[in-house]
Amino acid sequence: MIIYDTTLHDGEQSVGVALARAERLAIAGLLDARRPRDGGWHPQVGIPAMGEVERDDICTISALGLAARLMVWSRLNAQDIATCAWLDV
C-alpha cells in the first residue's frame, strides 16, 4: 500500500488554518510514527515555489530523519523544478 499524504499541504488550505513551523514538525513526526510499516507513506511536505520560509520548513522536516520518502508539490516548469532540485526530497 502507498499513501500519498497531503496533510501538511492541503491542511493549510483549509479556511483559517496556517501552521507554524513547530506545528508542521509535530504533525510530520506524529504521522511518521503511525505510518504503514511497509514504507508506503509519502508525505507532501510543502511547495518550494512559495518562498524561502517554505523551503526552510521543507529542509527542517527533511532533517528530522523520518522514515518516509518526502515529496513536494511543483508546477511543471523549469524555474519550479530548479527550485526543488537542491532540496532533500
Results as ranks from 00 to 15, higher is better:
residue 1 M to F: 08
residue 4 Y to P: 00
residue 5 D to R: 03
residue 6 T to L: 08
residue 6 T to E: 08
residue 7 T to K: 03
residue 7 T to W: 05
residue 10 D to R: 09
residue 10 D to G: 08
residue 12 E to R: 04
residue 12 E to Y: 05
residue 13 Q to A: 07
residue 13 Q to E: 12
residue 14 S to E: 14
residue 15 V to A: 15
residue 15 V to G: 02
residue 15 V to I: 10
residue 16 G to T: 09
residue 16 G to Y: 06
residue 17 V to Q: 12
residue 17 V to W: 06
residue 17 V to L: 10
residue 18 A to L: 14
residue 19 L to G: 00
residue 19 L to D: 03
residue 19 L to H: 14
residue 19 L to R: 04
residue 20 A to V: 03
residue 21 R to F: 13
residue 22 A to F: 00
residue 25 L to R: 14
residue 25 L to I: 14
residue 25 L to Y: 06
residue 25 L to F: 07
residue 25 L to C: 10
residue 26 A to D: 11
residue 27 I to W: 09
residue 29 G to P: 03
residue 29 G to Q: 14
residue 29 G to W: 01
residue 32 D to F: 10
residue 32 D to Y: 06
residue 32 D to R: 06
residue 32 D to K: 04
residue 32 D to W: 00
residue 33 A to G: 11
residue 33 A to C: 04
residue 34 R to N: 13
residue 34 R to H: 15
residue 35 R to Y: 04
residue 35 R to D: 01
residue 35 R to K: 10
residue 35 R to S: 07
residue 36 P to M: 10
residue 36 P to I: 08
residue 36 P to Q: 09
residue 36 P to L: 07
residue 36 P to V: 11
residue 37 R to E: 15
residue 37 R to T: 11
residue 37 R to D: 14
residue 37 R to P: 06
residue 38 D to N: 15
residue 38 D to I: 12
residue 39 G to W: 12
residue 41 W to M: 09
residue 41 W to T: 00
residue 42 H to L: 15
residue 42 H to A: 01
residue 42 H to K: 15
residue 43 P to W: 08
residue 43 P to V: 07
residue 45 V to W: 03
residue 46 G to W: 00
residue 47 I to L: 12
residue 47 I to K: 02
residue 47 I to Q: 02
residue 47 I to W: 07
residue 48 P to V: 03
residue 48 P to F: 02
residue 49 A to E: 01
residue 49 A to P: 00
residue 49 A to S: 14
residue 49 A to Y: 01
residue 50 M to A: 13
residue 50 M to V: 10
residue 52 E to A: 13
residue 53 V to Q: 13
residue 53 V to S: 04
residue 54 E to K: 07
residue 55 R to T: 08
residue 55 R to G: 03
residue 56 D to H: 13
residue 57 D to R: 00
residue 59 C to G: 09
residue 60 T to H: 09
residue 60 T to A: 15
residue 60 T to V: 12
residue 60 T to P: 01
residue 62 S to F: 04
residue 64 L to E: 11
residue 64 L to V: 13
residue 65 G to H: 08
residue 65 G to A: 08
residue 67 A to C: 05
residue 67 A to V: 10
residue 68 A to N: 02
residue 68 A to S: 14
residue 69 R to W: 02
residue 69 R to V: 12
residue 69 R to S: 11
residue 70 L to K: 06
residue 70 L to M: 04
residue 72 V to C: 12
residue 73 W to L: 15
residue 74 S to I: 04
residue 74 S to Y: 00
residue 74 S to P: 01
residue 75 R to Q: 04
residue 76 L to K: 09
residue 78 A to N: 09
residue 78 A to V: 15
residue 79 Q to S: 05
residue 81 I to D: 02
residue 81 I to C: 10
residue 82 A to Q: 14
residue 82 A to D: 13
residue 83 T to N: 06
residue 83 T to S: 06
residue 84 C to A: 15
residue 85 A to R: 12
residue 85 A to W: 09
residue 86 W to P: 02
residue 87 L to A: 12
residue 88 D to C: 03
residue 88 D to V: 05
residue 88 D to L: 08
residue 89 V to L: 10
residue 89 V to A: 10
